[in-house]
Every structure is written in structure tokens, then in C-alpha cells.
Design a protein around this nucleic acid. Structure first.
Lengths: 194, 194
DNA sequence: AAATCTGTGCAATTTAAACTTTACAAAGTA
DNA sequence: TACTTTGTAAAGTTTAAATTGCACAGATTT
């Protein structure tokens, strides 16, 4: 018959927590960030208080340089921040503790960037087309005219699409999404089961 | 003073189209797929009719094998399909022409997978915890009890989060998102400007 | 001022992903 | 039946991303 000492229990609990951290790391790749970003997020999250580069390097077995790189990335993604701890010379990093908020931050960072890049390309192409149009003469083949027309339509569709994404980002960022897709707190095995 | 022949105009138009294709390829990386997926999507989209592996290899300068790999991936992502063309032995591939639909397909493929993986991990951990709980005795330290309790709470939060994502996926997939974030068709330089 | 600590720029290395080459099975054609 | 065509599996190569090691600047302590 199996049995656990107090220490063994602690060990087992730790290994459950590690599984969670690993999964966070995996899932994070869906946002297009390195799994190490997810791993650090998981580690700091589970730690429940801010951590230093050294303690992170310790926990992951990775170099301090890498920890620095990743934390910087996480800050720029808005899912971590430095926290002042008096009496310590080291930087302390903490992470967003709200899962959904993390989702939104990453979703927003990614897609805002895309929208921005696209908008500037669209402007460039609109200009180019306007320029090319001035060279259309009665000698121009039907083919050219059709292609030009199509390109215009293409840009119209693009514009509609990227506006949509832009609105989508705002829809998330403003929290309006929660009005329509709410988060329902779970309470497993509560005192008063139905 | 600059001027363009008919052929030069065609050339210029083509290069505009290529810019669009390149950008589609770039943006596609936001979904965590290789830019080649985006490139093929762009090429077939611009081509306006189904293409074969050979013509794709031709257009991209890549190997036919790679084209095969990528098209298979696109099909599994629900953003392309084989199209039967009578009289031809070759497979012809066509792509989803609706940008927003493509967005939804990719969003859905990605996140459904995450939800699935998570759900099964959660089940496993719930079981493990129940198992460990049976070893809690009055000798167990406060520490162990707290950690165990916390782990439970953690799993509750996870559950809430992944249910949310699951609902989010449904919200997109069902098209309900469009009720709240509609796509507004753009019509640049229409006949009757305001 | 010398010695230490901390974070990070930069080049080098390792690891993983993208892509190619070769080979071959299945199906079609002569 | 022998000969092509087509798609893809498998293994190898190239390219890009992740990670490390070294070095050093700026701040802190002695």
C-alpha cells in the first residue's frame, strides 16, 4: 500500500505545479512568442511574488542574459512589469495575474502591429495606382484596365478587413468582449454541491 | 517626363500585386504559420483560380515537395481545398477568398487545439489532487495544506479561463462576432463622393 | 579609488524550423 | 507490359531562431 511523507507530498504538489507551468509555456506559443516567455510567465505566476533575473535563471537553468532578454520582451508585450523592492539592488519582475487580461494584451500587441503595417502599405499602393492611372490612354489594352480595376477592388477589401481587425482589437481592449462572452468563475467541489 | 508603355503598366500592376502577396505572407505569421503558407494563400488568391503544385512551385521558385507540404497544412487549417478539374490529372488547389473567414478559421484551429490539450491536463491534475488529498493527515504541515488548496484554486481559474476561450472560439465560429463587430465594406473614390 | 554587483550589447554557438533532394508508390497512358 | 506522370515519405541540408558566454558600463559599497 502506497503512502506519502509530508515532504513527498510537497514534492508531488510541486510537480503538479510544474506541469501547469509547462502547459502555460506551450500554450503561449499560440501567440507567436517563444515558449520561454510562457515559461517565465508560469514560473513567476506560480511563485506569487516578483522575481529577479538570478532567481529566474536559477529556476530555469538558463543564462541570466536570456532572462533579461525575455523579461524585456514581456514588458514590451504588456504582460510583465518591474516592481520596486526596497533594500534590493536587483530588478524584480512581476506578471499580469489575470489570464484573460494576458490574452488580450498579447492579442492586441500582435494585431495592432499588423494593422499598422498594413495601413501604411495601403496608402502607398493607393498612391501608386493613382499615379499609374494617369498613364492610361485609349491605346491601353482591356487587360490593363481590368487589372487596374481589380487592384482597386482588392484594396477596398483589404481596407474593410483591416478596419475590422482594428475594431476587433478595440472590442477586446475595451473589455466589451466580456459583455458578450463573459468569464464564468468555476468553483469545483464547493461546500454546497447542488 | 516619365511615361509607361502598355507592357510596362502591366509590369507595374504586377509588382503592386506582389507587394500585397508579400504582406499577406508576413501577416500570416501572426497566426503562427510559416510565411510560405501566407505566400501561397496570396498567390492563389491573386490568381483568382485554382492552381496546381507545379504552377505554385513555378511561381515561388520552391520545390514541389514543399508546395505539397504547405497545401496539406492549409487544408488542415481549413483555408484551402482541392478542386476537381476535369481533364487534368493534377490536383488543383483553391483558397478561401473571404479574409475574415480565413481569420476565423485560423483563430479557431489554433485555440481549439489549446483548449483540448488543456482540458485533458486539467482532468489529470484534478485526479492527482484527489489522490494526494487522501494522504493528508493531522501530521501534515500547514504548508502542504495551503499549497494543495492553492493548486485547487489555480485549477478553478484555469477552468474558467479555458472555458472562456472555448466560448470565444464559438463566438467567432458561429459568426456572432459580426453582429457586434461588423465588417463595413469600403468603397474608395466611388462615383458619388459626399 | 578600488572592488563588487547588476543588467545588457554583441558575437558565437546551439537548436529547431523551413526547405530540398532523392526515391518510390499509385494511377494513368501507350 | 513497359513507360510516364503525380504526389508525398524519408532523410539530408540550409536558414533562421533561440540561447549562451564574454565583456563592459553604470551604479553601489568598502
Amino acid at each position: 500500500m502506497e503512502s506519502f511523507s509530508n515532504d513527498q507530498l510537497l514534492q508531488e504538489i510541486k510537480s503538479c505545479e510544474d506541469l501547469l507551468t509547462d502547459r502555460i509555456a506551450d500554450n503561449m506559443e499560440t501567440f507567436g512568442v517563444s515558449s520561454t516567455v510562457g515559461r517565465l510567465l508560469g514560473i513567476i505566476y506560480m511563485n506569487r511574488e516578483a522575481m529577479t533575473l538570478d532567481s529566474l535563471a536559477d529556476e530555469t537553468g538558463m543564462s541570466k542574459t536570456r532572462m533579461s532578454q525575455v523579461m524585456r520582451q514581456m514588458i514590451s508585450l504588456n504582460i510583465a512589469e518591474k516592481e520596486y523592492v526596497k533594500g534590493s539592488r536587483k530588478d524584480h519582475y512581476n506578471v499580469e495575474r489575470d489570464y484573460a487580461q494576458t490574452f488580450i494584451s498579447l492579442f492586441t500587441s500582435n494585431w495592432s502591429e499588423v494593422v499598422k503595417r498594413n495601413t501604411s502599405l495601403e496608402r502607398r499602393l493607393r498612391e501608386q495606382i493613382r499615379h499609374l492611372e494617369t498613364f492610361l490612354t485609349k491605346d491601353s489594352t482591356e487587360d490593363v484596365k481590368v487589372r487596374m480595376e481589380r487592384l482597386q477592388q482588392e484594396l477596398d477589401e483589404w481596407n474593410a478587413y483591416y478596419n475590422w481587425i482594428d475594431n476587433l482589437v478595440a472590442f477586446f481592449e475595451s473589455g466589451e468582449i466580456f459583455k458578450h462572452v463573459p468569464i464564468v468563475p468555476q468553483k469545483q467541489e464547493g461546500g454546497s454541491a447542488k
